[in-house]
């Protein structure tokens, strides 16, 4: 669990949303990695990149490693930044295919769009995590002495009884009380 700091909106609160996003990205990494590793051939065919299967498999291994890193580590922040770097590499590789005589230019375009979308999520997640802390911060103000009571709460327990009037319409008649009194 990560906690928000001065640099995010709700200082001191746990941020389970970004946590969930990071885990989601971790699983996505593993899924994409497996596809690249075992479906390299069909991928290269769809992208007009036949012959580059080894590169695609290597990228797959990278994705899987990052995914495991995200899911298994205490602090996923560096791993999510790792994803951002990987995204850049993917985008650069795809961009090289836009030039030259690649017959699947349209598919390359779609792939670039998809990777760019995920990149945006990765950056958002990495930035948010970087601004947060692994442990909750101490409250920004210390109110631990603000009791409003002249003595300890234990000493003040029941102190108003006897000196205040509890109206009859606020008292349950003895016979209707559900719990025994000792």
């Amino acid at each position: 669990m990560r906690f928000e700091t001065e640099r995010t909106r709700r200082r001191g609160h746990p941020d389970s949303a970004t946590d969930a996003l990071a885990r989601g990205l971790g699983w996505f990494s593993i899924g994409l990695g497996l596809t690249e590793l075992f479906g390299a051939r069909s991928l290269t065919r769809a992208l007009g990149m036949e012959g580059q299967e080894t590169l695609v498999r290597a990228y797959g291994v990278r994705e899987i490693a990052t995914g495991i890193g995200i899911l298994a580590s205490e602090d996923p922040t560096p791993w999510i930044w790792g994803r951002v770097a990987g995204d850049a590499l993917d985008l650069a590789t795809l961009a090289t295919q836009l030039k030259g005589g690649n017959r699947e230019r349209e598919n390359i375009g779609i792939a670039i769009g998809a990777v760019a979308g995920v990149t945006a999520l990765d950056i958002l997640c990495a930035q948010t995590l970087s601004q947060e802390s692994a442990t909750p911060l101490a409250p920004s103000r210390d109110y631990s002495d603000r009791s409003g009571l002249p003595r300890s709460p234990d000493a003040m327990r029941g102190a108003a009884l006897g000196s205040v009037h509890i109206p009859d319409d606020y008292k349950t008649p003895e016979s209707l009380r559900p719990y025994p009194l000792h």
């Binding site: 669990m1 001191g12 609160h13 746990p14 389970s16 909750p136 101490a138 409250p139 920004s140 103000r141 210390d142 109110y143 631990s144 002495d145 603000r146 009791s147 409003g148 009571l149 300890s152 709460p153 234990d154 003040m156 327990r157």
Partner: peptide
Amino acid sequence: RVPERLDMARAGGAITINFET
């Protein structure tokens, strides 16, 4: 769930529960 409010609640004699955690 607001930490400093929970601190103030404890100062007044309450046991506190943070519903976010």
